[in-house]
């Protein structure tokens, strides 16, 4: 018997519900030597900005207990270069490409959505309103229900592509933001982005990151992500893409039980470039029964 794990998420057909998370998988090419892109449910690109963006001063990475702090700062070559240079490589692969976009204003989000809608290779958009490492835009949008709704509305008007809105965990009540963007026209939600954190080197007495603060990811944040997916699943009707420290098929199943319809793997890619493939294989073995929401 062949197990079918395919799903349709916000109108995007996926072979299986496991995607590569934004910012951890480049534009696919970087990992293509180590992992068969055709097997992945979908690739969410590194966040694309309208104009080239330099990113934050190094160090940009610090390891913490079972996690990583990062402050990359949305380094990007800009949307034009993405379309001209990065996107053509993905033509030869049979995998949906979801473009993560990050604007400094709602107008920029709309502009990005409009430009990317012209490309047939893009299956959907993920609005990054939750990056903790930039001064303008980023998490500021994701921490306020009205601002989050405004950005979603602006993007909604600019495109017919499925819209996934990526939420920040750095809020008191994530369900308020979730409900606001659902009402504003989001087709799905992805959560969680990184948690704002900080680490200090006691020998140099300086912060470990050039940006001082950064976003925490990895297994350390998984219980928080599970809790937020579970809370949000009860508050909205649109599907949820869960993420936060998924390293194994068992971790992914925990998210499905919490109410996620699909999952994304981020930090796991750094630890093992075949992490996503192994998770997918594990889910095929587990079967669809375990990929449903728990009764609690």
């Amino acid at each position: 018997m062949v197990t079918d794990l395919s799903i349709e998420l916000a109108g995007i057909k996926l072979k299986n519900p496991v995607m590569a998370a934004s910012g951890t998988f480049g534009y696919g090419k970087e990992y293509s030597e180590f992992c068969d892109l055709n097997q992945i449910g979908a690739i969410v690109t590194k966040s694309i900005t309208l104009k080239p963006k330099e990113g934050n001063p190094p160090p940009r990475i610090a390891e913490t207990p079972s996690g990583i702090l990062n402050a990359i700062g949305l380094q990007s070559d800009g949307v034009e270069k993405f379309i001209a240079k990065a996107l053509p490589f993905l033509e030869k692969f049979d995998v949906p490409v979801i473009a993560s976009i990050a604007g400094g204003s709602k107008e920029e989000f709309a502009e990005l959505a409009k430009i990317l809608s012209k490309s047939k290779r893009i299956a959907g958009l993920e609005l990054n309103i939750s990056c903790p490492n930039v001064k303008k835009g980023g998490m500021l949008f994701g921490c306020d229900p009205d601002a989050a709704a405004e950005v979603t509305k602006a993007a909604r008007k600019a495109t017919k592509l499925p819209l996934i809105v990526k939420l920040s965990p750095n809020v008191t009540d994530i369900t308020l933001i979730a409900k606001a963007v659902e009402k504003a026209g989001a087709d799905a939600l992805s959560l969680i982005n990184t948690l704002l954190g900080m680490a200090i080197d006691i020998n140099t007495k300086k912060p470990k990151l050039g940006n001082i603060t950064g976003g925490l990811s990895g297994p350390a944040i998984r219980p928080i992500a599970i809790r937020m997916v579970w809370q949000t699943a009860q508050a909205v009707k649109i599907p949820i893409v869960g993420m936060g420290g998924i390293m194994t098929a068992e971790d992914a199943i925990e998210f499905f039980l919490a109410g996620a319809s699909a999952v994304q793997v981020g930090t796991g890619n750094f630890v093992d470039p075949k992490c996503i493939i192994k998770i997918i294989e594990g889910l095929y073995k587990a079967g669809p029964d375990l990929l449903t929401r728990g009764d609690f």
Partner: peptide, 8 residues
């Protein structure tokens, strides 16, 4: 592998 842009 050049994906995360961490080692700038």
């Amino acid at each position: 592998v050049g994906a995360c842009l961490g080692c700038a």
